[in-house]
Write a protein that binds this DNA or RNA. Structure first.
Lengths: 144, 144
DNA sequence: CTATTTGCAAACAGTTTGCAATGCA
DNA sequence: TGCATTGCAAACTGTTTGCAAATAG
């Protein structure tokens, strides 16, 4: 399993409400898709999945909604070495390990690296605001 | 200063030769630009700088050359939270700290974090192949 | 001399935007 | 009613590609 934890629809709706976001039908739909998704879908994928539930949603709306959610910290944008962006709920800080052979994306968390990151920033005279950390790896084969 | 070290034109030409790359005039030009650059130029910037020395180079050639160099490990592609890519010579492993206020890009190196990265990958059953690590920070103001 | 590389312009992919119609407080 | 949001299509940006001419070994 690639997810460290789960947010519920109720929790996410609550966060939108707190952010003062009007939860219209298409927005709730996009949120729902992300809550249900076990993977890290591209905009296209979110659109496809949304269309199944409501064939009249527009791609542009999906883009606008994801941008809006991102702006309000509801959602996290993932930029891997790809030509498109992926999104996930902003829920529980973690980073990604990408299997270079299969493209699978795994999540991980590590306190030591979190401390080290802030420490490095501090040494350079900065307060850490944000961070991108992606590991690209090849599955280690069991040795006979 | 944002650079940890410098490669010379000779060293880079040598590496191209070893990679079996034909060093044509436009290619040498792009290489030259990168050797001279103290910053992390976008393709557009490389193109502009190249054009000063040779007004007849085409944007497409700059793209093709950078892709080629990237493919052969001569150059590193930097994907910050921007809509375009930046490039730098693949010379001395390091990561980037981006000043969120000014956009300045600083380089850093840290052995502890290198070890930790491989260790995390290993714990997840992977051999680390590559890694993206970007710190985004705000300059810490001196306290009175 | 032959294969590679270039410059140009057109194509392309992902994303954003203008606008009239719709929906919601 | 009035303002925000949607769907659609067109625009836009960064990047890639087809092709004929130029170049390199």
């Amino acid at each position: 399993m690639s997810h460290l934890g789960h947010a519920t629809m109720e929790e996410m709706e609550e966060r939108c409400a707190k952010a003062g976001l009007k939860l219209t039908e298409p927005r709730r739909l996009v949120l729902q898709i992300l809550v249900e998704s076990e993977d890290h879908p591209s905009v296209e994928m979110v659109y496809e999945r949304a269309r199944i539930k409501d064939p009249k949603v527009a791609m542009a709306t999906v883009y606008r909604t994801l941008n809006l959610f991102h702006e309000f910290g509801i959602v996290t944008r993932i930029d891997l070495k790809e030509s498109f962006a992926r999104y996930e709920l902003n829920w529980g800080h973690h980073h990604h390990l990408i299997d270079v052979e299969t493209g699978e994306v795994h999540e991980f968390q590590n306190d030591k690296i979190e401390k080290l990151k802030s420490q490095i920033a501090a040494e350079m005279g900065y307060d850490l605001v944000e961070c991108v950390l992606e590991l690209y790896g090849r599955k280690r084969h069991a040795v006979a």
